[in-house]
Amino acid sequence: MPFPKVGNVAPAFSLKNQRGETIKLTDFKGNKNVVLYFYPKAMTPGCTVQACGIRDTKDEFAQLDTVVLGISPDPYPRLARFEEKQQLNFDLLSDEDHAVTQAYGCWDMKKFMGREFMGVLRTSFVIDKQGKIRLVMDKVKTKTHHDDILRWVKENLV
Score class of each variant (00 low, 15 high):
residue 31 N to E: 14
residue 97 D to Q: 13
residue 120 V to R: 04
residue 137 M to I: 09
residue 13 F to P: 09
residue 145 H to V: 04
residue 5 K to Q: 14
residue 29 K to M: 13
residue 109 M to K: 14
residue 1 M to N: 12
residue 20 G to A: 00
residue 98 H to C: 15
residue 60 E to W: 00
residue 59 D to C: 01
residue 139 K to A: 13
residue 158 V to I: 06
residue 11 P to I: 10
residue 116 E to K: 12
residue 127 I to A: 06
residue 99 A to F: 06
residue 49 V to P: 03
residue 11 P to E: 11
residue 13 F to M: 08
residue 4 P to V: 07
residue 53 G to R: 05
residue 69 L to I: 05
residue 30 G to L: 09
residue 59 D to A: 12
residue 33 N to A: 00
residue 60 E to I: 00
residue 36 L to Q: 09
residue 54 I to P: 03
residue 5 K to C: 01
residue 77 P to E: 02
residue 71 I to P: 09
residue 19 R to H: 14
residue 99 A to E: 13
residue 129 K to F: 01
residue 107 W to L: 01
residue 85 K to L: 06
residue 2 P to D: 06
residue 53 G to Y: 07
residue 92 L to N: 11
residue 24 K to W: 05
residue 93 L to H: 09
residue 140 V to N: 13
residue 36 L to C: 10
residue 11 P to L: 12
residue 8 N to Q: 14
residue 47 C to D: 02
residue 105 G to E: 01
residue 59 D to H: 11
residue 127 I to F: 11
residue 72 S to V: 01
residue 65 D to C: 04
residue 3 F to L: 08
residue 85 K to C: 01
residue 141 K to H: 15
residue 59 D to K: 14
residue 101 T to G: 10
residue 147 D to K: 15
residue 65 D to I: 05
residue 118 M to A: 13
residue 82 F to W: 11
residue 7 G to Y: 02
residue 146 H to V: 00
residue 64 L to S: 03
residue 10 A to W: 08
residue 10 A to Y: 08
residue 89 N to A: 06
residue 8 N to C: 07
residue 133 I to R: 09
residue 123 T to M: 10
residue 28 F to L: 08
residue 66 T to G: 00
residue 115 R to Y: 08
residue 89 N to T: 09
residue 141 K to E: 15
residue 80 A to N: 14
residue 153 V to I: 15
residue 41 K to I: 02
residue 23 I to P: 10
residue 109 M to H: 09
residue 122 R to Y: 14
residue 86 Q to N: 13
residue 146 H to I: 00
residue 85 K to A: 04
residue 11 P to H: 10
residue 75 P to E: 12
residue 138 D to P: 12
residue 156 N to W: 07
